[in-house]
């Protein structure tokens, strides 16, 4: 059944009772007032920084390092990393699907780890290295993972595809010897509605093989 996913657990938010946005608002409040324990029990923890200064609710300056480039933005503290990139930087490869840490369509690699960028505030991503799907192409060339997706037809409508490419890329950065079970675990935090999992499984295994070679 659903192997929801040992990605970066710290970034997974959302339960049935609160919306992701409400939760994040609660979490950012907690950051500023130290009330986290009261609110965050149901959800994995946001970053600990009880001494952080109060920010917002108005726009604040935020500096993001995306695919090696530094961007200075003015954002409300409640804006997620995903929305900041999509709405303010026109970096739209990462998709918004569930918007609460279930589907993986928004997956980015932050400091080397795959995270759900819908469940991370932009202000929390300051000072971190953010890689999106746009950052995986080198000199206009497809990455080996992308090529394996194409060869194995691991995409139909393609809306989930960037998230899967990011998850597979993060997985392969960790280990090059992949068993089918490890692929299931590594890609188990992403959802595809068109049903491309058969091709995805083959693509991940083939990418692993090619990158070893």
């Amino acid at each position: 059944m659903r192997g929801k996913k040992p990605k970066d657990a710290a970034q997974k938010g959302g339960n049935g009772a609160v919306t992701r946005r409400d939760f994040l608002r609660g979490a950012s409040l907690a950051v500023s007032t130290g009330l986290l324990a009261a609110d965050g029990a149901a959800v994995a923890s946001p970053p600990e920084s009880s001494a952080a200064a109060v920010v917002g609710p108005g726009k604040v300056p935020v500096t993001l390092r995306v695919n090696g480039q530094v961007h200075r933005l003015e954002l409300e503290p409640r804006v997620t990393l995903l929305d900041a990139l999509r709405n303010d930087l026109d970096t739209t490869g990462s998709k918004r699907v569930c918007d609460r840490g279930t589907c993986g369509a928004c997956t980015m690699i932050v400091d080397g780890k795959a995270v759900y960028s819908c469940s991370l505030l932009a202000i929390e991503a300051e000072g971190r290295n953010i890689t999106t799907i746009e950052g995986l192409m080198k000199d206009g060339r497809l990455s080996p993972v992308m090529q394996a997706f194409i060869d194995n037809d691991a995409q139909q409508c393609g809306f989930c595809t960037p998230g899967f490419v990011m998850a597979a890329t993060a997985l392969l950065a960790e280990r090059r010897h992949l068993t089918p079970e490890e692929v299931n675990r590594g890609l188990g935090g992403n959802i595809c509605r068109c049903g491309t999992y058969h091709g995805l499984r083959l693509a991940a295994l083939e990418a692993a093989k090619r990158m070893k070679a």
Partner: peptide
């Protein structure tokens, strides 16, 4: 939502 409206994930997928 997508946590309780359940869709198959890759681990649910058999051999074809």
């Amino acid at each position: 939502n997508m946590e309780f409206y359940k869709l198959a994930t890759i681990g649910d997928i058999p051999e074809f």
